[in-house]
Amino acid sequence: MLHVFACDGDRLRWAREAEGVRTPLPAETVWLDLQNPTPEELARAEALMGIKLPTREQMAEIEESSRLRVTPDAVHMTALVLVWADTDQPRIVPVSFVLAGGRLATIHAVDPQPFLAFRRRVTRNGGAELTAEAVLAALLDGVVERTAAVLRRVGLELDTMGSRAFRGRALPVKGERRNDTRTLKRIGHTGHLIGKAHVSLSTLNRLLTFLARGEGWTPAKRTRRWARAALQDVTGLGEYAQFLSGKVSLLLDTTLGRINVEQNEIIKIVSILTVTLFPPTLVASIYGMNFVSMPEKDWTFGYPLAVMLMILSATLPMIYFKRRRWL
């Protein structure tokens, strides 16, 4: 899918009419957004940009020299962007940004939410970003803000789970039912999401450092100034993500520890019941034997004495356990 955005006077306009296969791309094009492009769309974009755009295999490279490089005709930058953060299967997908000839091309397989929001804003009000670097800054700002919103939501969720985990039995909540399996799944999903966000922030950190320094090329002063400010935000978010990872570890240890304590309590109760019922069971077993020569068999008060002995043998261990505070 190819989205074309062109400069229309003092506004950025979504040129939908130029997205047809047989329609030539306007010379005023500022941004080409390619989502899962077909070979024809990729060829049209490359013809306008005057360069070869990266393939999926090149975008998947993990070496920094492959993700951030300057060629005589273009600047190639690739970052991992967090997508599907509101689902049970969050992902990080490579998104390539290519600056060449005063134009920006973005290539991605999954449409990140900030890209969709930017296109909608341009559709409603038109965009104030008239240069390729301004569009790049707006898109990266949206990615950073989206990641920050995800981390903020995760932080609130961890606070809620933490308050429940550390509340204990003294402050029960009416109608609340604790499900340890569900809690462990939520903690695991939260840790997985934070890990994805941290990886994305790491690649954004390197990309913004590359923009701020302008190594091998000369971005506009406004772009470099914006990159330095955005770099501070990304650095702070990275530290916050590490803090949330620590909270996830603490919450996981607390939950597993509480489950272990509860299991030990159950085992202790079962052990105490076993020890308590063993003496009366022994008495009942002895006097339940059907031997002919049993002196107690002809006793008048044999039955009540046996019952009293069983009750006494069960009561004395319970009293002992109570004094030792095992119950």
Rank of each mutant, 00 (worst) to 15 (best):
G195R: 09
E40I: 15
E215Q: 12
A230G: 02
I92V: 08
P112H: 00
R164L: 13
V261S: 04
Q35E: 15
V135W: 02
T190L: 12
N179Y: 03
W226R: 13
K247T: 07
N260E: 10
L201G: 11
R325G: 08
G238W: 00
Y240R: 15
R182K: 14
A137G: 04
A27M: 11
V30W: 03
L82Y: 05
I259N: 02
T29P: 03
R56V: 00
V98H: 00
P72H: 14
P172Q: 05
A128Y: 08
R91K: 02
I286F: 12
R206P: 09
T235E: 04
V199Q: 09
G127A: 14
K297L: 10
F291L: 00
Q232V: 10
G302N: 03
G168Q: 03
D298V: 02
Q232W: 03
T71L: 07
V234D: 06
R206A: 14
P26C: 09
D33C: 09
E19Q: 02
L48Y: 03
W299R: 11
A79S: 07
D159Q: 09
T106P: 09
L231W: 10
T209Y: 13
V81T: 01
A74W: 04
E57G: 08
R323Y: 10
E215S: 12
D180F: 09
N179G: 07
R186D: 14
D10T: 12
G155I: 06
Q58W: 05
L82E: 11
D180E: 07
A284L: 11
T38D: 05
P279H: 11
I51C: 09
G9T: 02
V21A: 11
